[in-house]
Every structure is written in structure tokens, then in C-alpha cells.
Design a protein around this nucleic acid. Structure first.
Length: 413
RNA sequence: CGGAGUGUAGCGCAGUCUGGUAGCGCACCUGGUUUGGGACCAGGGGGUCGAAGGUUCGAGUCCUUUCACUCCGACCA
């Protein structure tokens, strides 16, 4: 895409109400725009990144055999009364009435809706197991929303729910989801730990959290210095690793995923049963699995930024290559840059062409702020047949011959 | 909900103490000159100073009430 045609309102000034790097840079680089406490608009760049992350989540879940659905954002309060959660979840639920006085809530999570969906469509063990998920808006009226996308009130969440004939099969799926989440976080280029956790308001027994390691994390976790063991401090109070006996270190993490072994808590409460192979009614044994998709964006930047701006990882970047035309009035620069732009597009590579009338300084600053992994600069040395290639993460520059340029760029994406 | 702060142009801020014609920087528009690290010159547009009420000849400024937003805490995927 061409920079001149996308809305990317970058700013030099740090917004007065942002303190975390992810919050500051996502706003300054024109990814998001806040408009009320805990509420954000996704601008074009933010939407592109969100869709990329979402696509990775979807791809891995589909590969694991889960199926995507989309449940309504508005749910009757009766769903929550039936499960007994209307009081337990309390004020985080945004409640309202329709014109007839019927009570509704905005979905904060969808165990009830999903159990009702399955209850109405699955009657036999022959249709089990099944894992249904959705990636859509949630609303939680947080006591104190903060840190931009990190803890918004409205946010994009992937929530999956699995249904099984027994606990063994549910645990098999739980382990599969753990492996699937690991693939997702790894593809996104994140440094993360899987930790033992409390189950919180969701309930259930076994539960693990996926923590993105970052100083600004809201959770304190203990991680083993040699193996991959990790646990939430509320769960783990010891000083040595129960797995291998080495020292445990305290660190901060951002909770971006959480998987639960639910059991029959919701199927019992909502009277959701199937017929087993003896024709006997049994409650579904359930698991539930969540990823904070919009929170992942904040997490990626918390873990990947410098004092100049964002540094997107390969699979999360809005574009793979940022082509900079140093001086838009130099016909040769425009021609050569446009040529590379078209060649890369033809290869299916996401590329941003900075064709604005601004000077070089503004363009390179925006490149550093936005954080696309690689920049290609068509400038002064083009008359000698040379262009400059810059790696965003290291800011390392190298000169490349125009003749060899396409291959050189392709090597990097 | 306790504690602390902030609301003045799209963004960042000064002006409020000590009441007297609404300011600065960035951004934006027009013209010109520039073009490798956020250019320069000239001209220009944009505000019910968060809201309501009060005091006063006169309120951005003083008083009262209220709303919003941010930070710390408790709480929470």
C-alpha cells in the first residue's frame, strides 16, 4: 500500500495520558486512537496488525481441529442467572434493558452462550468431542481500565470451549490446546512462559496461563532458571523448582492466554446433557481456552520496542518492508522505488511505499516509530546504483546494489 | 471505591496565585524556496477555556456543585 493513501496519523508528541511504551507508541505511530476510558478505535495500521494476529490464532486453532463460530455480543441476563454467575461476575458485567424492560448483558465471556448452543444441537456422544471457538468483542466493565490495549474494557478475545464425554478426553484436549497456544505464541515471536495459575471467577480445576515476559507485566510469576517451569506467585511460594530443583526467579508477565479444565460446572448448572453409549444422560465435561487478541498487540510491543518506537515481530508486522522514497521530486528514485514495490507485491509480500512529499528525516523517523522490520531507502546513492537497507531491530544499515536488490530483500522477509 | 493529579484549538502546553480583548509550539490551509535525520520565509483558518450555577461593571482566572480522563491501591481474563 502507499503511505499517502493510508490514514497513519503519527505524532512527535507523547500523549499526555499514556505511560506504558506499548500505549505510547501504538498511539504515536497511529495504530490506535483512544476515545473513552478503556475504549480504543483501531486505525488502519492497528486493524491490519489485529487481523494478522487474528489470522494466526485462527489458523492454529483450525489446524488443531477446533471450529470457529460467532456468538452474539448481547446475551440475556437469564443466561447468567441460570449459571449463577450474574452476582459472582458482578459489576464487570455491563447490564442494560431493552425497550420492553428485558434485561441483557454485554458478553464478558461466553461459557453460558456456548453451553446453550451445544445443548440445543448435540444430543449424542457420537457427536463428541467438539471444540468451538470465536474471535470477537468482549466487554468487561473493569474497575480501573489502564495501559491502553493492555486492560481495555472492550477488547478482542479468542474464546474456545470444548465438550467431552469424560474427563480423560477433556484433559487430552487441554494438552492439545496448550501445545496449540505454544505454537501461536512462538509464531508471533514472543518470549513467554506457561505457568500454573489460579482459576479465578471462571472456576474449574486445572488451569495454566500464558505469560509474555515483560517488565511492565501486571502479574508476578516465578520461573525456573534452568527448565521451563513457571508458576504464578499466588500458587508457587517455594524458592526452588519442583520439577528440577534449581532456583526460581521472580519476574513480571503479561497474561495473554489462559486455559482451564472446567469439568461439569456449567453443564450441571445449565442442565446440559448428552446420551452416552448406554443411552444414559450425562453432563458434558468441558474445557475453556482464552487468548486476549488485542492484548497480544500491547504485549508484542511491550516486549519489542526501543526509545524510537515499535519493533514488530516478523509475523505481527503490519508490513514486511517499508520502501522510502527519499526525495519525491527525483524521478529516478520514484521509478526505482515503485519498481521494487511492484516486484515485491507480485511476490505476495506486504509492502508499504512511503511516497509522501515529506523530507527524508520525517520518513525515517516514521519508519522507526511504526516499526516495520525492514526499510529500503532510495536516496542519494541511487545515482551510483546503490540503495540502503535498514533493519529496524538493530538499526543496522547496509548498502545494496540495485541489480541485486530484489534478492537481497527477499532474503530478509 | 480510597489516595493523588489533570481538563484551555486536532496534539503538547502557558496563562489561573494577583479578575480587565484567548496565547505559544507542533499539526492544518495558501504562495514561494528547499529535499539524507521530523526544513525555511510570508500569509491564513481553527476556541461557547470540561459542564452547570454563583460573586462581580467584568470570570479561563474567585466560590459552589458536577462530569470526564490519567496515575497509585484494592480487584480482575
Amino acid at each position: 500500500m502507499k503511505f499517502s493513501q493510508i490514514l497513519i496519523p503519527t505524532t512527535k508528541e507523547t500523549p499526555n495520558d499514556a505511560s506504558l511504551p506499548s500505549h505510547i507508541y501504538l498511539i504515536r505511530a497511529g495504530f490506535i486512537q483512544g476515545y473513552s476510558s478503556g475504549l480504543y478505535n483501531m486505525l488502519p495500521l492497528g486493524k491490519i496488525v489485529l487481523d494478522k494476529v487474528r489470522a494466526i490464532v485462527k489458523e492454529e486453532l483450525d489446524n488443531a481441529g477446533a471450529m470457529e463460530v460467532s456468538l452474539g455480543f448481547v446475551t440475556p441476563s437469564s443466561f447468567w442467572k441460570d449459571s449463577g454467575r450474574i452476582d459472582k461476575y458482578g459489576k464487570e458485567l455491563l447490564k442494560f434493558e431493552d425497550r420492553h424492560g428485558a434485561e441483557f448483558v454485554l458478553s464478558a465471556t461466553n461459557e453460558e452462550s456456548m453451553v446453550n448452543l451445544v445443548k440445543g444441537s448435540i444430543k449424542s456422544y457420537k457427536n463428541l468431542p467438539i471444540n468451538l471457538y470465536q474471535i470477537n468483542l468482549k466487554f468487561r466493565d473493569e474497575i480501573r481500565p489502564r495501559f491502553g490495549l493492555m486492560r481495555g474494557r472492550e477488547f478482542l478475545m479468542k474464546d474456545a470451549y470444548s465438550f467431552h464425554v469424560d474427563s480423560d478426553d477433556m484433559i487430552r484436549e487441554f494438552n492439545l490446546m496448550e501445545a496449540t497456544y505454544s505454537k501461536i505464541f512462538t509464531r508471533l515471536g514472543l518470549d513467554f512462559r506457561i505457568v500454573e495459575a489460579d482459576s479465578g471467577a471462571i472456576g474449574g480445576s486445572g488451569s495454566k496461563e500464558f505469560m509474555i515476559l515483560a517488565d511492565s507485566g501486571e502479574d508476578t510469576i516465578k520461573v525456573c532458571s534452568s527448565c521451563n517451569y513457571g508458576a504464578n506467585v499466588e500458587v508457587e511460594t517455594g524458592e526452588v523448582c519442583p520439577k528440577c530443583g534449581d532456583a526460581l526467579n521472580e519476574t513480571k508477565g503479561i497474561e495473554a492466554g489462559h486455559i482451564f479444565q472446567l469439568g461439569t460446572q456449567y453443564s450441571d448448572a445449565l442442565d446440559a446433557k448428552f446420551l452416552d453409549n448406554n443411552g444414559k444422560a450425562q453432563p458434558f465435561v468441558m474445557g475453556t481456552y482464552g487468548i486476549g487478541v488485542s492484548r497480544l498487540l500491547a504485549g508484542i510491543i511491550e516486549q519489542n520496542h526501543d526509545d524510537k518506537g515499535c519493533i514488530w515481530t516478523k509475523e505481527s508486522a503490519p508490513f514486511s518492508v517499508n520502501i522510502i522514497i527519499s526525495n519525491i521530486k527525483k524521478e529516478e528514485e520514484v521509478a526505482e522505488a515503485t519498481k521494487l514495490y511492484n516486484e515485491l507485491k507480485a511476490k505476495g509480500i506486504d509492502v508499504l511505499l512511503d511516497d509522501r512529499k515529506d523530507r527524508f528525516g520525517a520518513k525515517i523517523k516514521d519508519f522507526e516509530l511504526i516499526g516495520i522490520p525492514t526499510a529500503v531507502i532510495f536516496g542519494k546513492k541511487l545515482s551510483d546504483g546503490l540503495v540502503e537497507v535498514v533493519e529496524r531491530r538493530t538499526l543496522e544499515k547496509s548498502e545494496v546494489s540495485v541489480d541485486n536488490l530484489l534478492n537481497e530483500v527477499l532474503k530478509r522477509v
